[in-house]
């Protein structure tokens, strides 16, 4: 079983990101489960969402306390929220960041990948320039680093789930897939 914990702020689409990734996994005949830390999804407030996947069915539910990987949709969270709590050794931190993340902000030995998902989303008109909806972009970056699903499956899942600007969202995922960089590994 692989467990991924998403950290974002209400409005960035962390919960929907998990739904999209789960659907993409289902399209590749994997079992997937998407949920969120329920009850706290206020705009701007720190939000957590959870993705579990396995070739077999997943029995455990709820919060992920020991994630295999972490996705950070908002770089300002790392100062306020213990985003790396419980991260398993060897796990990736995939984050939205305009600049190269400082390794000193994370536990020693962390594997960090980043892309400017905010700029990519804004370029494709997703959300507003001040608060872009970065979820589809960051998923593109994530699946490049952790080869969970193909870009095609992700694109199809995006088209099925996002309510509007479907191709722009797919383009954002592709943009991040192509531009994700390794900051530490």
């Amino acid at each position: 079983m692989i467990e991924i914990r998403f950290h974002g702020r209400g409005g960035q689409g962390a919960v929907v990101a998990c739904d999209i990734l789960a659907l993409a996994l289902l399209k590749e005949h994997q079992y997937a489960q998407a949920s969120s830390l329920f009850g706290a999804e206020r705009r701007g407030a720190p939000v957590q969402a959870f993705l579990r996947t396995d070739p077999d069915r997943v029995l455990i539910r709820g919060e992920i306390f020991k994630p295999d990987h972490i996705v950070i949709l908002d770089p300002t969270l790392i100062k306020n929220v213990p985003v790396t709590a419980g991260l398993k050794p060897g796990g990736w931190i995939v984050m939205n960041s305009a600049s190269r993340p400082k390794a000193s902000d994370f536990p020693p030995g962390s594997k960090i990948a980043f892309c400017d998902a905010g700029a990519i989303a804004a370029k494709h008109g997703l959300g507003s320039p001040q608060s872009p909806i970065v979820n589809t972009a960051i998923l593109g970056g994530l699946i490049k680093v952790i080869k969970l699903v193909s870009l095609d499956s992700l694109a199809n899942a995006i088209r099925e789930i996002v309510p509007g600007r479907k191709e722009e969202n797919v383009a954002a995922a592709k943009g991040a897939y192509e531009s994700i960089q390794i900051a530490a590994s």
Binding site: A22, S35, G62
Partner: peptide, 9 residues
């Protein structure tokens, strides 16, 4: 939450 707001196949 554990069922109502959790998606699975």
């Amino acid at each position: 939450s554990y069922l109502s707001h959790t998606s699975e196949p």
